[in-house]
Lab assay of single mutants.
Amino acid sequence: MEVRTIKVFTTVDNINLHTQVVDMSMTYGQQFGPTYLDGADVTKIKPHNSHEGKTFYVLPNDDTLRVEAFEYYHTTDPSFLGRYMSALNHTKKWKYPQVNGLTSIKWADNNCYLATALLTLQQIELKFNPPALQDAYYRARAGEAANFCALILAYCNKTVGELGDVRETMSYLFQHANLDSCKRVLNVVCKTCGQQQTTLKGVEAVMYMGTLSYEQFKKGVQIPCTCGKQATKYLVQQESPFVMMSAPPAQYELKHGTFTCASEYTGNYQCGHYKHITSKETLYCIDGALLTKSSEYKGPITDVFYKENSYTTTIK
């Protein structure tokens, strides 16, 4: 009895394709271990004539594949690729409408935090270190965002349907971005203890939790000093293409032309909904596939993004 075979390709990165001759009487799992086709788990399936010449994702289970996976995804987590594939199996079914010149995501599976993050990423200057993220990001900007969303979920250790947080998501993504040249110098002034300067680099240099107003941050924000008295913390120097200011959701007025974009969060910790506000020729609110415009805006804002380049204080 002759062994019926077909020729397929296996890959971990969709760049390096490895030619395989597979036995049609055995499952993919018996031949390769966990195997995925377009995100779908085909591990328990036997090869079919229609699979001839198709590319299958496999887990990096030998040295060659491990090197290829690390170079593309910059992670050695053995569960990463499987999590990416199972997320992709959902995100490829989502709709990605162009809204006001940006790629958004039609609401499904509690994905409003991903839509808000995706919209924000198209408006701030950011370059990702893992080629996987950078490639998928370019495709997302062009309207094909399924891979990018699935990668975000995998890097953030999230599953489809789980509630997510924009600030946490951005923080994970910033860790995989090139923020080497970003720098922030802060000064804390206390009447009792004097003053202390701190220099922050990388992710810490672009994120701040405690106030939404970048102007206020430049002037000074009140913080408790270690001595128990009130101290003032203010920005001395900022070198970065953008800054992200966050605070627990509270009524906040966004003035046209003073910011790049913002995240609105309605609801409580267990259950809520994100919308995205962007400042173009007027203010726009993007909620999944829905767009509304207004000249002014007041609502429960939790993150505001500002364009920056270089700032030095005039406070002496």
Results as ranks from 00 to 15, higher is better:
residue 220 G to M: 02
residue 286 I to G: 01
residue 215 E to I: 06
residue 207 M to D: 01
residue 293 K to P: 14
residue 121 L to Q: 01
residue 162 E to K: 04
residue 79 S to D: 10
residue 67 V to L: 14
residue 222 Q to V: 11
residue 305 F to R: 00
residue 248 P to C: 07
residue 53 G to S: 10
residue 64 T to H: 11
residue 18 H to N: 07
residue 19 T to V: 15
residue 177 A to C: 14
residue 4 R to A: 12
residue 269 Y to E: 11
residue 19 T to E: 08
residue 17 L to W: 06
residue 119 L to T: 01
residue 96 Y to F: 07
residue 223 I to L: 09
residue 166 V to Q: 04
residue 34 P to Q: 14
residue 218 K to R: 07
residue 124 I to F: 06
residue 178 N to M: 10
residue 109 D to E: 11
residue 197 Q to K: 11
residue 106 K to P: 02
residue 123 Q to G: 04
residue 229 K to C: 15
residue 90 H to S: 11
residue 286 I to C: 01
residue 236 V to C: 11
residue 308 E to G: 07
residue 50 S to T: 14
residue 275 K to Q: 06
residue 60 P to Y: 07
residue 316 K to L: 10
residue 299 G to H: 01
residue 287 D to H: 01
residue 21 V to A: 09
residue 154 A to G: 06
residue 88 L to Q: 05
residue 69 A to P: 06
residue 258 T to G: 09
residue 42 V to H: 14
residue 49 N to I: 15
residue 75 T to L: 06
residue 236 V to H: 07
residue 258 T to C: 08
residue 119 L to H: 03
residue 284 Y to K: 01
residue 205 A to L: 01
residue 180 D to Q: 12
residue 154 A to L: 02
residue 11 T to P: 05
residue 270 Q to V: 12
residue 232 T to N: 09
residue 167 R to L: 00
residue 170 M to D: 00
residue 189 V to D: 14
residue 288 G to A: 02
residue 107 W to H: 03
residue 109 D to A: 08
residue 190 C to M: 02
residue 264 E to I: 09
residue 265 Y to I: 01
residue 210 G to V: 01
residue 316 K to C: 14
residue 188 V to E: 09
residue 139 R to N: 12
residue 144 E to H: 10
residue 93 K to V: 09
residue 35 T to V: 05
residue 119 L to S: 04
residue 188 V to K: 14
residue 155 Y to L: 04
residue 125 E to K: 09
residue 115 A to M: 07
residue 271 C to F: 13
residue 256 H to I: 13
residue 87 A to G: 07
residue 233 K to L: 14
residue 129 N to K: 08
residue 129 N to V: 08
residue 266 T to Y: 09
residue 297 Y to L: 02
residue 268 N to H: 09
residue 307 K to G: 09
residue 315 I to R: 14
residue 175 Q to F: 06
residue 267 G to I: 05
residue 43 T to S: 13
residue 161 G to T: 05
residue 181 S to Y: 13
residue 262 A to V: 02
residue 173 L to D: 00
residue 111 N to Y: 02
residue 301 I to Q: 01
residue 199 T to S: 12
residue 25 S to D: 05
residue 207 M to R: 06
residue 90 H to T: 13
residue 9 F to P: 05
residue 68 E to V: 07
residue 102 L to N: 03
residue 249 P to Y: 00
residue 29 G to P: 05
residue 263 S to E: 01
residue 13 D to I: 04
residue 36 Y to G: 05
residue 298 K to W: 13
residue 289 A to K: 06
residue 10 T to N: 13
residue 249 P to S: 01
residue 74 H to T: 05
residue 101 G to R: 06
residue 264 E to M: 06
residue 7 K to M: 09
residue 119 L to Q: 02
residue 65 L to F: 13
residue 283 L to C: 07
residue 249 P to K: 00
residue 7 K to T: 10
residue 270 Q to E: 12
residue 199 T to Q: 09
residue 180 D to G: 11
residue 36 Y to T: 06
residue 172 Y to H: 08
residue 63 D to S: 14
residue 7 K to Q: 12
residue 205 A to P: 03
residue 231 A to M: 05
residue 147 N to I: 10
residue 286 I to W: 04
residue 105 I to P: 00
residue 62 D to L: 11
residue 219 K to E: 15
residue 217 F to V: 08
residue 200 L to F: 15
residue 14 N to F: 09
residue 43 T to G: 15
residue 124 I to R: 04
residue 237 Q to K: 14
residue 113 Y to Q: 01
residue 278 T to L: 12
residue 242 F to P: 01
residue 294 S to T: 14
residue 65 L to V: 08
residue 74 H to M: 08
residue 60 P to R: 08
residue 21 V to P: 11
residue 225 C to H: 10
residue 232 T to M: 13
residue 194 G to T: 05
residue 49 N to F: 15
residue 169 T to G: 00
residue 20 Q to C: 13
residue 70 F to Y: 07
residue 215 E to N: 10
residue 41 D to K: 10
residue 172 Y to A: 15
residue 288 G to Y: 02
residue 131 P to V: 05
residue 106 K to V: 12
residue 54 K to T: 12
residue 27 T to I: 13
residue 292 T to K: 07
residue 80 F to Q: 02
residue 202 G to W: 02
residue 36 Y to Q: 05
residue 91 T to C: 09
residue 51 H to E: 12
residue 151 L to V: 04
residue 196 Q to C: 11
residue 56 F to W: 04
residue 50 S to M: 13
residue 26 M to I: 11
residue 44 K to S: 13
residue 3 V to W: 15
residue 274 Y to Q: 01
residue 286 I to L: 05
residue 26 M to A: 15
residue 228 G to E: 02
residue 136 A to W: 09
residue 95 K to F: 09
residue 151 L to Q: 01
residue 239 E to D: 09
